[in-house]
Nucleic acid binder design. Structure first.
Ligand SMILES: [Zn+2]
Ligand SMILES: [Zn+2]
Ligand SMILES: [Zn+2]
Ligand SMILES: [Zn+2]
Lengths: 163, 163
DNA sequence: CTGTGAATGTTATAATGTTGCAAATTTTGC
DNA sequence: GCAAAATTTGCAACATTATAACATTCACAG
């Protein structure tokens, strides 16, 4: 299997963003969802940063584009992108990040480096199945899983202060 | 093993709260942490509700006590209680709940019913170990895990609209 | 065209959380 | 005990995150 680009491995991020946008256009077309210019622009801004972006960060970027947007514009775009599986909200950071596995059904698991702020999204089937099992043992019907791991990424363990 | 009381099983909740407070006093004494009146009162308020309580909910309860507190008072008390493992913050709800396993080292896992709002805290060693494994595979050093499952509790599956 | 629903603009406001400093309280060293 | 030091609390202002309500514009079908 080809290794996906990750925040930890340098890569051509422009290509990475372009790919994400292209994927998004296809996914939206398939789902009859309208990836309007604002929505696409918000998705692009989020993808340009591997680090999660707050709604007001997005807002500021839009403003520096000359787009005079208000909070609801951003939150609505973010809602749309979440609904369509294109971004995730990181609850422990109040921030958003592009989904690494759009179109694939998955329960995301996020490794959040407290030093450099990068976030890596994983799909861990073994984790998911243990979670489902533990919930099922209590008779609980799982609908949505939030799994966020804070800690130190490999680079920051080796090189404190790294960015 | 004796079944713990859970939000799903009715139980003598006054006793349950008293027990939690007694445990907290012992734990704080052991750790040389000062469970001051405000802190104890906040812990009690949180325990009285099995449902997670927002910081401003706590504030309102304090106010109805006649205690004229400001937000920092509550947030500081909550920080203290978290530091000492007496409450957890539920990131997906911006709310706090008493820890079911205080004094025991554990990575909490929370089953959050979207219908009745009750939250059950579990310790699931199998889940924790799978999580650690998945993180370790990426060379990531786990410090803190947020695992919150939203869905339907057994009662609400059977009896929609139940509280 | 034109009516209809979706998307966006706009303003205001709600909800959650923090900073900074002063006053009070508790602990510590003597 | 008593003064110095450290911790805790009070308090005012402020920062950040998110939503409500309603008007306007836009895309698209008939
Ligand atoms: Zn990338
Ligand atoms: Zn890092
Ligand atoms: Zn109880
Ligand atoms: Zn329920």
């Amino acid at each position: 299997m080809l290794a996906r680009p990750t925040p930890y491995r340098p890569h051509n991020h422009d290509a990475c963003v372009s790919q994400a946008l292209a994927d998004a256009r296809i996914i939206c077309q398939q789902q009859n969802a309208r990836l309007t210019p604002i929505r696409e622009r918000v998705l692009e801004l989020i993808w340009r940063s591997h680090k999660p972006l707050g709604a007001y960060d997005v807002l500021a970027e839009l403003a520096s584009d000359g787009h005079n947007a208000a909070p609801p514009t951003v939150y609505r775009a973010l809602d749309f992108l979440q609904q369509n599986g294109l971004v995730h909200r990181i609850a422990s950071l109040n921030a958003f990040i592009g989904c690494t596995y759009p179109g694939e059904s998955h329960a995301g698991m996020f490794l959040i480096c407290r030093a450099c702020g990068n976030v890596l999204e994983l799909t861990a089937p073994d984790v998911s199945s243990e979670v489902r099992k533990a919930a099922a043992d209590e008779g609980f019907r799982t609908e949505n899983t939030t799994l966020e791991i804070a800690g130190l990424c490999p680079l920051c363990q080796a090189e404190p202060g790294h960015d």
